[in-house]
Design a binder for these strands. Sequence first.
DNA 1: CGGTAACCTGGGAT
DNA 2: AATCCCAGGTTAC
Length: 424
Amino acid sequence: MCSHFYAFVLSLRFSPTMRPPPPLLPRIAASASATPPRRQRTVRPPMPPSPALLSSTPPPAAFVETPKPETTQQHPPTARRRLTLADEEWHPLPLSLAELSLPLTLPTGQTFLWRRTSLSPLRFTAAVGPHLVSLSHLPDDDRLAFLLHNDDPASSPSSSVAAARAALCDYLNAAVPLADLWVQFTAADARFAEVAARLGGGGARVLRQDPVECLFQFLCSSNNNIARIEKMVWTLAGYGERLGEVGGFVFHRFPTVERLARVSEQELREAGFGYRAKYVVGTAKELMAKPGGGAKWLALLRDRELLEVIEGLCTLPGVGPKVAACIALFSLDKNQAIPVDTHVWKVATQYMLPELAGKSLTPKLSIVVADAFVAKFGEYAGWAQNVLFIGQLPAKKLVATEVTSETAKPTKRKRATKMVEIQA
DNA sequence: CGGTAACCTGGGAT
DNA sequence: AATCCCAGGTTAC
């Protein structure tokens, strides 16, 4: 039954709507599942969430931390002495700790754009669309909250708090009830239960990123390490509009495809991209040739089937099955997509398909692995895979926290880092 | 169609 | 100190 879909994928390859196929070599949808997707979802994920989770509307008054309305001035006269959360105008989001753990979601390999701008309380900052936001948890509450701090107040009037909240709920995939999934996954697989327990309480959530942003990030990820990926992605972000400075980091809105298409390969090579420089430039130009400029073409993939999505993405230079699956899962609503990399391969041969141990990972075998995940975990298999992937990361690396230069006294040129174990 | 070797770079291990 | 190996892969033989 696997072969049906394999043939299906090959046929898709030559779909007239796609760019002319390269000479050969079926770079098939390695991470696609052969399981026919029932009821293809379009934009919104399945599993109707509780009304309270349906966002973009302000949360109940009980969750509002600051007594004053959001339209008041940003810094009350008495705010000099102690900057509490309230003084900074944090705005609550409808996500509990069980639904979203920041350290298990932001710095664990699905995005490379967030920066830790505070250690205690733990705080992360990044641009979400045009909004420069920090995320943290309110004290004495397990609710998440965000702080909006674009440079120019005029460009972010009070109304944009609502816009930022809506953008965040979308970005954080807030409508998908993660806690329910974990119950299901824990019952389905002992290995998942073990990893989930070790990670403590849940909250490893799959994001719903902007497809352009996601694509160019994972273009940088091939045969590479996290530190350098972050550096490269940060370089790309620098081509976008400046949004502001937080914690010593200057944040930019992620650049448009059009802007990226004007960057030269040599410029990127000098920035340390290596052979990926030509992937970035090539993909940007390839996208510009699409009707609507590429961003639209990518966005429309959200309405397509997983196999077709993988197939389409693989026409872009530098995008293979694994990177395509990452983009599908982390930005295109393809919750069944399973990025099969070395870590997932290890998990699969160790716990799920021991008969494959010792073999090398081929595109066909990664389909087998993806199928095994979907057979075990179902429609949201990609979310389970994400947790198992995190479980493969070195425990000490899960929350590697940078210490600021004033407290760290780095002995060498490189930044000192301090490892902080998660939970307790 | 499966196996293999380059491909840029930088950090850590030997 | 010189080399090797690896890092969430993709591409070309």
